[in-house]
Design a protein around this nucleic acid. Structure first.
Lengths: 196, 196
DNA sequence: AATGTAAACAAGCGATCGCTTGCCAAGATA
DNA sequence: TATCTTGGCAAGCGATCGCTTGTTTACATT
């Protein structure tokens, strides 16, 4: 009887190591050791090292998409959708920080064909945020923003989360999202600032 | 007579390759080929592969520091200092995009001691932005921001630049800085928004 | 108890890794 | 002219890379 959990176990080991040491910095022997077997035994479950990377990256991309898609397509004020989209993104990062790191950093190690596939997924994901921002501008809720800059800024903040956010820390993912949303929506400047 | 330009030439080759394929994804033979010599000849100029990485990363860190330090320590409104600090940062990225990429991504490949050294430099750099933000809050020019979040958000936007900014493109570094600064200072929300 | 099969191990393949060594041509120095 | 230094080449070191092969173990099914 096949134990379907074995491959998932290997994927878990790989995502941990890829996240910590990078794709090229991780050997198949590392992955095997982390999985509790020898390197040759890995090949009963996988076709090659790069397949592991692709599966990790593709799954991570899908998780982001699935989390934010319904929010971008839903109803409500753009500011609310933006806050909820950020919260959903952060929840994905918090739920699988290593996978998010690998998704953002190691996709360049893929073959050109697979890299193009991931680029498509990433573009589709970014389009969700572009849509929310355009909605906000069109309905007058947001200032006449440069959509590209606003989107890039929001995504930059989200994409850099992996570098400092610890899921077990004092801040829950929704609290972080609230703080980000407030920051982006209201800006830094005090009304009637002193301008010293 | 020693030709002092040779080592710089090797460093240039290394920063290009590290930026494109990562540290572990680049071999010393790659670096040698890019430098127009064979791998053995490299070792007349360097002590080892990791020394190249360290020198690249440390120099990049210093460039950021030198560019922003006088702005953070200078005079003027915090909003202006923030905009000028961002512009200075972006100029550094634009002037050496590969080095900035390596600085942000590949420092984890360094030995623990050297990694700690780079972490110190990075912390000192981030402190410059923290100082500007605190100044703005203290003098009342900024709202009572959470300094940590504001700093992280600004630095996220700056650190993600390498992923999309092309120095030869339509936007100059100062234009990008202006747009970022406006976005952060004024926020997304329109005064008297429709809140539909 | 006999058989089939999934999943592991032991061993090692060819290739490539970072790096070292011994050597030599060319230019500077004396 | 004789010597020394620089910066390169050719060759190859031991280690490790991703991966393959042949065999064995453990367990489910019959």
């Amino acid at each position: 009887m096949a134990r379907p959990g074995r491959k998932e176990h290997v994927l878990d080991a790989a995502v941990t190591l890829f996240g910590r040491k990078g794709y090229h910095g991780t050997t198949v022997r590392d992955i095997a050791r982390e999985s509790g077997m020898l390197s040759g035994s890995l090949y009963a479950h996988i076709d090659g090292k790069e397949d592991l990377l692709f599966e990790i990256v593709a799954r991570a991309a899908d998780r982001f998409m699935v989390a934010v898609q319904p929010i971008a397509g839903g109803f409500g004020p753009a500011s609310d959708k933006l806050r909820r989209a950020m919260a959903a993104h952060i929840r994905v990062v918090a739920g699988s920080r290593d996978a998010a790191t690998v998704f953002l950093h190691e996709w360049t190690a893929l073959s050109p064909q697979r890299r193009a596939l991931i680029a498509e997924k990433r573009d589709a994901y970014e389009a969700l945020f572009a849509r929310i921002i355009r909605e906000g501008v069109d309905c007058g809720e947001f200032r006449p923003l440069d959509e590209r800059f606003a989107r890039l800024t929001v995504l930059s903040a989200l994409n850099w989360l992996y570098a400092w956010y610890t899921p077990g820390g004092p801040l829950g993912s929704d609290e972080v999202a609230d703080k980000f949303a407030e920051l982006f929506l209201e800006g830094f400047r005090q009304e009637g600032a002193c301008r010293s």
